[in-house]
Computed example of a mutant assay.
Amino acid sequence: MNTWSTQHTFTPFALSTTDSLPELAMINLSDWGMVTLVGPDSKSYLQGQLTCDVVSLTADKSTFSGHCDAKGKLRTIMRVFHYQNGYGLVQRQSVMASQLPELKKYAVFSKTEITQTAAVVLGLAGAHAQATIDHHFNGDADVRHNDTTTVVKVDNERWLIITTAEHADTIITTLAPNAVYATTELWNLYDIKTAMPRIDSITELEFIPQAVNLQAVDGISFKKGCYTGQETVARAKYRGINKRAMYIVAGAATQCPQAGDALERSVGENWRKGGTVICGYQYSNNQAIALVVLPNDLDDDSQFRFADTPEALWHKLDLPYDLNAE
């Protein structure tokens, strides 16, 4: 029996709004999982399913991507990279049961095997994460491998670590013996601060890719050929039909906003539904921060609230990227 998760104690890392992030944290990403595609048709199959350009994805890079239904609504957002003899797709565990059968639907006509793996997915985060990876993994690529582990760069302070339950204890002990061992809430905070989109089961098939800023994080190719939902995605870009975007909002809160929660917005003296929470983080000093899909024409000083705490007003923060950049 593999007991890596009980040999190391991963706990919520309490942060207030004035605290610094830990210099190095090992994070148990138990709510993330990985799907693999192996076989000679895997590249072409994914090219016809995902929003990213799989054909141009080199072995040293990873990319965001979306998987849509025929109407262009997102089933999931994933990180795609070369893995072993095929591809790895890291996405939320909550969408696996509904999204994976859809990804497999036409695979019977292609030479590709699609499998939800039992891989252990960990995160390494903090100012020292890059130096730690550089010390233990050869090369300077954004995707690196050794005999037991694959590491994938997320941003300047984060890496995904993908290994097996058999080797997880050794990887954790070797890479980061002095790190903070944290649960997935800390990874959520990083995702919110960097405005990285995700889809959970409760938000599945609710948004087109541009409504969660997938184009702003290079998760959509507008030059590749057809893929499922492509017509809607292209129309949103070239005809301006998309009226929503994902923003960072912050405010007072006594509990953590959850994916799918509704945020109200002020309209004169009234309030109406303004948006949907994608991910939230609760600080220790009764403040919270969240990613929320909102109308993309709201004023920067718009006010928001949750219906169950109407006295606590929320506001938008600046995004770390330009939604209008080409």
Rank of each mutant, 00 (worst) to 15 (best):
L15D: 09
I208Y: 09
A245E: 09
G72W: 00
H136F: 15
P22W: 06
D134W: 13
R79Q: 10
A59E: 15
H82M: 00
Q210T: 04
Y321H: 08
L122I: 05
S42T: 05
F10I: 05
G274C: 00
Q258M: 07
T184P: 04
G72K: 09
C52E: 13
S94V: 02
S42V: 01
S16E: 12
Q91I: 11
I133S: 14
C226I: 06
A290P: 10
R244G: 03
V120R: 02
L57T: 01
G126E: 10
H128V: 09
C226N: 05
D41E: 10
N138F: 15
K193A: 07
N242D: 14
D297W: 10
T254H: 14
E166N: 02
R239H: 07
N286M: 08
K273F: 12
M1F: 07
P295L: 09
A168R: 09
H82E: 05
A182P: 03
L74A: 05
T150K: 05
T51R: 03
S5K: 13
V249P: 04
E206C: 10
Q230D: 04
G66S: 06
T3H: 12
E102T: 06
A97H: 09
S302W: 11
Q230F: 02
A131F: 06
T149C: 08
A176D: 06
N270Q: 15
G86K: 06
Q282P: 01
D19Y: 02
L263G: 06
S5T: 00
Y45T: 02
Q287D: 09
Q258H: 08
K104F: 13
T309P: 08
A14P: 05
E166V: 02
T63C: 13
G123L: 00
L189N: 04
W4G: 01
Q255N: 03
I27K: 01
I162M: 10
N156S: 13
S221N: 02
G72M: 06
K243E: 14
E269Q: 15
F207H: 13
V293S: 13
N178A: 09
G240E: 11
I199H: 07
V249S: 03
R305Y: 00
K223P: 03
I199V: 14
A168V: 00
I248E: 13
D300M: 14
I192T: 07
F306I: 03
L103C: 13
K224F: 12
L124R: 04
H128Q: 15
G39N: 03
A14E: 15
A236V: 08
D300Y: 03
